[in-house]
Design a protein around this nucleic acid. Structure first.
Lengths: 200, 200, 200, 200
DNA sequence: TATGAATGAGGTTTCATTCAT
DNA sequence: TATGAATGAAACCTCATTCAT
């Protein structure tokens, strides 16, 4: 058994356990049992309990960013890009609801305790959205009166909440359904004219 | 000194402390010190530490729901209703960033451990949005191809994320600015035609 | 309402509560509620929680000793005296099982923490038995090869255990029945010849 | 160092500490210090503080029952059996006065909080006495007008009280002396005729 | 006398982390 | 590398006691 195999097993176990009981309520011993290793072994691969959470995050973000890059590669239409981005987000969340929950809920908690640098991958995720929007604006496809960074945040919050609810609940909603509505409403918001100002 | 005064002081202290250190990392003794009472006093007003968090939530939601009801009373235009809802949401979050953070971050954590009934106020909050959307659809103002419950979730996630970032960050963005963009993009999404389907 | 009335009510409440939950597991607040007074009131009549237990003991012993003195007054036959002593012991224990349990169980616990002087009334109780036995031996009614102090201890232990079990259990045994067997076996032990020595 | 070694050391320390300070007044930390282990170690071997007391009881009873079985094995004379039973009881109590005190005093306290099943060993102890008496009655050696269960309780209470006093006090009495008187008086009570009824 | 809200010392228990094997 | 028994710091919570009213 390779060494990375064990690291992997611990990370996966951490996701399962953290999703089940929450980060602070989970015990390192639980993760160890779930991974099938001894308590002490975890400290051979991770600095401490919080590092375990951070690594779960880094690891996941790395994969998600890679999948998004892949999905977007060779696609130049901003509308299609947004459609793909949303699709991948839901696919990832759907393929591992537990992981999604941990990233969304548990991490947010610890976020303020993390160094800003640790959050870089998250900034890159937002950056992808912002770049799509900015390019769409340049190409005259998207309205210009909203800031790309704003859209990134707003869209992320929306997808995050939807994915979480979907993962947590009994999933009576079809993923396709959810994705469809999300794409539709987001495009509606970005394509529409500028007549609906918030200023009264 | 009235008893409610003390309960109030403890609740406020809890918000401050939880926002500063996070719920799990905060010590009951910290809350007590911040409130200027003895450790034991907290247990005269709250069952235990988690109850303190729940009460902060219930208390806040009660006030927010009340403010929303007030703001929406006597307003029949769905577009204006949405505008007001978003405005109030940002106002509340802006008037007490710490509180907003606790509600958003810390509570999400404990949410899965709470009884469903405890979350009722949150359901009512979503309900307000859904009702506005549904009425707008009936009146033919909003497009009909998206479910009100979906919009409620999506909009809440968006506002939540925006308010949190705004509260947490250095607030280089004006609240008015943020609100304006939010209103604009949301209305764009709801008013637009149905041509931008997610299905290709 | 006289002051002694309140002291009395607190003492009675203490007996009830201590019997129900045990001395250490009982809370002063429980005693207060049972007595229908405020927590602080108890400290107007008793130095502290342990003093409350001691006073229950002193008070009870005073009454029991008085009842034994009365029952034995004017009775000169050692056999009849023993019979009466046992009868009174069971009567007392039977009239207030809770009290019996507290005296027997809870007090034994604290006994070693009490000053020897506090236990004086208990010594007097044993003294009554010892005196009966000694007199019986002088009159040639009881065998002389056992020490009165020994009999006092042994008899007390026996009565104590029997009364406790009887008070605690479902009382399927008649008190009369128990008393009869106790008297019979004790007299058997005291009247019998000296042939059954423990030395082999 | 074997694990049982540590469990044993903790049990022994508990006996010492509980006997010295009483169960409720003792701190788990005291037991830990006495045993030479860390506080937390105790919880590797025992569920909680009360479990520690229960295990002391179970452990002791197991040994006492075993010693009684051994002592009585191969002995058919009821009189000799009683004599041996009493002897063993005193020996055990004498070999570890602290243990005797804990079993007698502290446990009685918690007894009502224990499940009936936990008390089984105690029931077996009484059962041994009852069986001896019953057999003695069948063989016509003991009088038949007293119930074996009654004798068991009475004898136990007597031995318990005597052993406790002896263990607690300055032991001015010889154990042999005490044992002799106990055997003598008990046999007197069991062998005697039925003429001394409690009924007048 | 009586109250009961407030106190705060201190105990039980948990659990992240270490280290001898 | 791997183990898991042992550690011990630290937190929640209780509850006897006080004291302002």
């Amino acid at each position: 058994m390779g060494q990375d195999d064990k690291r992997r097993r611990i990370l996966d176990a951490a996701v399962t356990v953290f999703a089940r009981s929450g980060f602070y309520t989970s015990k390192v011993a639980d993760v160890a049992r779930e991974a099938g290793v001894a308590d002490g072994t975890i400290y051979l691969y991770f600095k401490n309990k919080e590092d375990l959470l951070i690594q779960v995050f880094m690891d996941t973000m790395e994969r998600v960013l890679h999948r998004q890059d892949e999905a977007l590669a060779g696609c130049v239409d901003p509308i299609e890009q947004l459609r793909r981005f949303i699709t991948v987000h839901f696919e990832v969340a759907g393929s591992s609801p537990a992981l999604a929950e941990v990233i969304t809920v548990e991490l947010r908690q610890s976020a303020k305790f993390m160094r800003a640098t640790e959050m870089k991958p998250f900034g890159r995720y937002l950056g992808i959205i912002a770049r799509i929007v900015a390019e769409g604006q340049e190409k005259g496809v998207f309205r210009r009166d909203i800031q790309p960074r704003f859209v990134a945040r707003a869209l992320f919050g929306m997808l995050d909440e939807l994915a979480l609810e979907w993962a947590t609940s009994e999933q009576e909603q079809e993923m396709t359904d959810l994705r469809g509505q999300a794409v539709s409403v987001v495009l509606g918001g970005l394509l529409g004219t500028q007549e609906h100002s918030g200023q009264r």
